[in-house]
Every structure is written in structure tokens, then in C-alpha cells.
Design a protein around this nucleic acid. Structure first.
Lengths: 194, 194, 194, 194
DNA sequence: TATGAATGAGCATTCATTCAT
DNA sequence: AATGAATGAATGCTCATTCAT
């Protein structure tokens, strides 16, 4: 047996850690944070319960890692959006992407929304989340400015809040409002030339 | 004939029940429903765990009592609104009342928002909440119709979602957005003649 | 053994103690001792929980009272049997009465049988039960002697055990054995002239 | 690869599981299923409450394990019996073994008897127990058929019931009946040529 | 790095019993 | 003799976390 290189160990570590995060993400997205036990995650990841505590000191630590991973989704959206030619299309894309996302990742969205209400309890997360919102808002603002809005910052906040609120209502009472029509109304509102 | 009078018993009941509800409200608002245990509530209320089950058959039953109490706030708003002369003023009042309410009852609002994300877990509550939302939406719709909006139902949903979303963001990251300005923007948007 | 007078029955109905015992008997017979709560008994008897402790110092005390009452059933059988002309008919009657009783008072029988297995835990009851068995056995023995059996005492024990055993099996797995046929077999065995 | 070897883990499991079953058996036999708490069993086994749920998913599961173990005793009897040359001897052996068993395993027998009265409450067990009884009865029937009885099935049931009934009486009031004589009477009854 | 047996505090709920009146 | 609010210990069960190896 040749001695393992530091690289190999590192790769294993990353592997196990990655498998754990992936498993936790999947389970928590489907069932929520409280309803997902460490034992389930370990089983899903094909790893022992004990090992999880080598990488994450608590269940909450795992949660933070998951939220980090969730940010990747935002990135994906941003990348695609960069290819679109004008601000109206970009906003249209944001709206459509949001609806698509929270309807197709309902439990995940539910978890993140619930989490955001407890954000004060997780100081580590607070900063990350705030930076994210800040970034998004600044970007939305620039879009609204390009479109010639009077108060692009307020519009940016409002659009963000409205999308969050729609997700919230969808997740609590389902599609009572006619989501497709709602989406169209929103697009009409924001993407027409002023 | 009874060794304690009916009045005495009634007083005891009202007293104890009130203490329990108050304690439960305070704790659940601060920590959430799941993170609040029956034992904590009993301790805070200065009452034995067992007694709670004289008044509420389950933990969920206690929750329902609290939410019912919350509904009273909505009634208060509705009653005041009825005295206002025209739809634009009514909508203005709704917006102002909402901002006022979620900033001055932050922990309460946090609880209700978090709860709405778990509403599927509380079958007893689902129906009550949905009926309430339905009623409010219908009323908002009539206001927008009176104001001559093309699609008053969609506008009603949108306003509700936006207010929820603003509360959500306020509760998670605080007043990063300039709530007062936001409120004005919203009022301008909705209460001007078309 | 005079029959109960109408006065005695009336008194029981009016009398709180009587109502409690009657209620306890009914509930425990239907649902068993453990599954019957003091609160249920009080409700059924139309009496407060507190009052029950004026008459019975514990739930077990109530149990003893019930078993006493159960003895009345045995008396009823004895009285009827006394009118029958010969030992074979008496034994036939005992057998038929037993089958009739444990099939029509299944939960009551279940409770008494279960109780007899715990008899050591209720010293008060032990003596009563033993006296009862002793009396019955002596009587059975005299019947078998009259019928000319070699070892009437053993036959008496055996018949008692067999009837208990049949009740036990009926109560645990139901009528897998064909109770009617079983009864006939038993009658043929014991009531034919030797 | 594992840091404790599989063998080590296996040994721990067997050890702990055995201690739990032993403790549960002792306590339930003495006090009954309902009167024995998980906490008591854990204390008696020198194990934490939580650990019990590594091995038995519910209290009833533990019960099933105990009853399964009891079934082994029946097997022992069956195996020995198979070596006997003729049906009369086999029946004699069954009778002697039964007496031997319930007098020397009194508390165990008490538990199983009490349990059989509650079998409806344990759906898992119902089927197992019924299958076992069915098998035994069929076998007894074949013995009585070989001995030329008219109605071997009824005789099989009757013998089973009588043995159960004798155990019941022995366990509730002790050896008032002269068990040795009783055994002889029973053997005389069943094992003589017709 | 990795295991999984073991822990123990915690959970919601039940119920026989007490007690001030 | 009678009430029923109040108690508190107990129940079966869960699960994040620890630890010897």
C-alpha cells in the first residue's frame, strides 16, 4: 500500500462532506429542517452519524452549509440572465424564474422562507443572507433605472417583496390565486415601456 | 349546593386560561411553535402541565386559541375601515395599518408568518385561515373594482402578497429598505386615481 | 339469600355509592380495568371525581367492590340450579350457563380472568375468591358423587378448569373451536349415566 | 475499515439486547405488560431508555421478542415428543410437560396467560399466536385420531383448554387441587386404550 | 477518518389523587 | 356530602450528540 497523499485524503474529506450536504439538502428540502433527523441524513449520505460531527459541529452548522449551497441557484439564474439583451426581458426572466422556482421547489422554498424568519438566531447566516439581498437589490435597481423608473430602488424592494409574498401565499394556501394569471399581471406591470 | 360556587369556578377557569394563553403567545411569538414546549408554557404561566389539558386538549388546540385571538386584530381594522368614505382611503388605511401592525407587533407577526408556512400541519387551522384570507381578498377586490381597476382580483392578491412580503423582509433583515418611503410608494401606486 | 327488594335497587340508584359501583362495573366490563379512568366513571355515575374518594380510597378499592358485585351472578346461577331435579341436569345447567355467561359477558369475563392472575396483588380479594372457588368445588364434588364418579373431587376440579380454559381460549382467539359443538361434547361427557 | 470491528459491534448488540429481553421478561412476568414501564426495564437492564429503541421499535415489539422466545419452549417439547413411539405416550408427555412447565415457570406462564386475554390489543402478535395454536391443535387432533377417538378435534380443543384452565387455577390460587393427583387423573382419562 | 452503540434530556400527553371551599 | 380545578409523577417515545475503538 502506497501512502496516501494529502490530496487523496483531502478528496475523501470533500467527498464525504459533499455527500452529507447533498443528502441534507435533499431531505430538508422535501421534509423541512425539523422533520429531518441526523440519522436520516447519515443514511441517505451513506455515512455514519459520528462522521457528520467531524464536519459539522451541530445540526445547525449543516443548515448553514445548505443555505450556502442554495445560493448556487441564485447564481444560475444570474448567469442565464446575463445573456438576455435588455432590462425588460431580464425582469421578465426574474419573475418567471421565481415562479418556476418556488412552485417546483416548494419544500425547499418553505424551508428558506421559514429560516429567514429565524435569521436572528443564526448570526453566521445573517450576514450571508443580507449580502445576498443587498446584491440582488442593487442589481434589480440598476434594471429599473435602465428602464427609466422614477424611484428604481423602491421598485426593486417592492418587486422582491412581492415575489416573496407570492411564494409565501402559494406555500401556505396553494394556488388559490391563479398563479399563471398573477405572473402575467406582474410581467405586464413591470415589463411594459413606461 | 356546590361547595365552591359556580362563579368561583368560572373565575378560576378564566384566570388560568388567560394566563396560559398569554404565556403561550409570548413564548411562541418569540421562539416559534415547535421550539416552545408545553413545559415552558406551563412554567411561564405559573401552572402545572396537567392543567393545560383541562383547557386545551392538545398543543395544537392552544395554538388555535391564540390564532383566534389574533383574528380579533383583523376585526379591529375592518371596523375602523368601515367608517372611511371612499375606496382609495380604505386602501390607504389598509396599507398604513399593515405597516403599523407588523412593525409594532413584530414577534406576533413573526409567529403568524412562520405558522402560515406550516399551515398544512395543522388541519384544524387550515380551514379557518383560508376562510379569513378568502374574506379579506373578496373585500379588497371590491375596493379595487370600485376604483375602476381592470383586474381587481389580481390586484387584491398582489397587494396582499406585497404586504406579506414586506413584513417578511422587515422581520428577517429589519428596515433596510426605508419602510416609510416604501409605504409612501405603495400608497402612491394604489391610491391615486387611475 | 333473599332476592334483592325493590327498595334495595331504588336505594342503589339514588345512592351515590351505588351509582358509582354500577357505572364502574359497566365501564370496566366493557373496556377493562386499565382502560377505564376515574373521570369516565364519575361522568357515567353523574358524580364528581372528588366524591368517589369519599367512598373508595383508591381505584383498586372500587375494583374490590365490583368483584363483590360480580359474585351476585354466581348466586343467580346457584338459585336457578337448586330448582333442577337431578345432578346430571344440574351439571348440564352449569355447563350451559358458563358458556352462555362468558360469551355474553365477554369483557367482564376477561376482566375477572385477568384479575384472577393478579390475585396475589389484592390480598383483600384473595380470600373472597378462594372461598368462592372452594364453595363451588365442594358443590360440584357433591354432584359428581351423586352421579357415582370414582373420584368426584378431581372431576370437580377438572370440570372447573376446563370451563375456565374454554373461556380463556374463547376470549383470546374467539370461537375457532366451534363452541356449540364443544358444549355438546362436554355435556355428553359429563351428563351421561356412567 | 471500521474502527470497532464488526465482531465487536455484534457482541455489543447481542449483549445489550439479551440484557433488555431478560429484564423485560422478568418484570413483565411479575407485574404484567401494562404495569411494566420502559423506564423500569431499562433500569433493570442497566441500559438507557433510548437504547431500547435501537433494538425494539416499540414496547410491543419488545413483547413480541419475548413471546417469540417463549415459543422456543414449545419447540423443545415438540422435538422430544417426536422420539416417543406411540400416541398415548405422546399425550402423556404433553400432559406431564405442561404441568412441569407451568409449575416451574410460573411467572412466565402468568404473563403469557394474561397476555392471551389481551391479544386483541397486539395485532402483531395475534397472527403469530393463532398460527401456533392452530398448529398445535392439528397435531393433537392427529394423536387423538390415531387413538381412535370419535371426535378427535373436539378432544384436542378440550385437552388444551383443560391444561390452560389448570394452569390458570394453579397460578391464581396455588395447588389447592392436588396437582399430582390431577395429573394422574388426566393421564388415566386420556391415555388408556378406549 | 470512520463507526454505530449508547446516552439523557426532552417531548406531548394521561390520570389517580388532593384540597379549598 | 359534594365540587371540579389543580397537581405532579409517570408514560412511551425521539433524537442530537458523545465516545471508545
Amino acid at each position: 500500500m502506497p501512502p496516501k497523499t494529502a490530496d487523496q485524503f483531502e478528496e475523501m474529506r470533500v467527498n464525504a462532506k459533499g455527500r452529507i450536504v447533498t443528502a441534507a439538502l435533499k431531505l430538508m428540502a422535501n421534509n423541512g429542517y425539523h422533520a429531518t433527523s441526523i440519522a436520516q441524513i447519515a443514511r441517505e449520505a451513506g455515512v455514519s452519524k459520528g462522521l457528520m460531527y467531524n464536519y459539522f459541529s451541530t445540526k445547525e452548522g449543516l443548515l448553514v452549509a445548505i443555505v450556502d449551497q442554495a445560493m448556487a441557484t441564485g447564481l444560475e439564474m444570474a448567469n442565464h440572465m446575463a445573456t438576455l439583451p435588455d432590462p425588460a426581458l431580464k425582469i421578465k426572466f426574474i419573475i418567471e424564474f421565481s415562479f418556476q422556482w418556488f412552485t417546483h421547489n416548494a419544500e425547499y422554498a418553505r424551508m428558506l422562507l421559514a429560516l429567514s424568519l429565524k435569521v436572528g438566531m443564526f448570526p453566521q447566516m445573517q450576514a450571508v443572507v443580507e449580502a445576498k439581498i443587498q446584491g440582488a437589490t442593487t442589481f434589480y435597481e440598476s434594471l429599473f433605472r435602465d428602464m427609466g423608473y422614477d424611484d428604481p430602488l423602491s421598485e426593486a424592494f417592492l418587486l422582491g417583496a412581492t415575489l416573496d409574498g407570492l411564494a409565501l401565499q402559494y406555500l401556505s394556501v396553494g394556488d388559490k390565486m391563479g398563479l399563471d394569471k398573477m405572473k402575467q399581471t406582474l410581467i405586464d406591470k413591470y415589463c411594459k415601456p413606461l
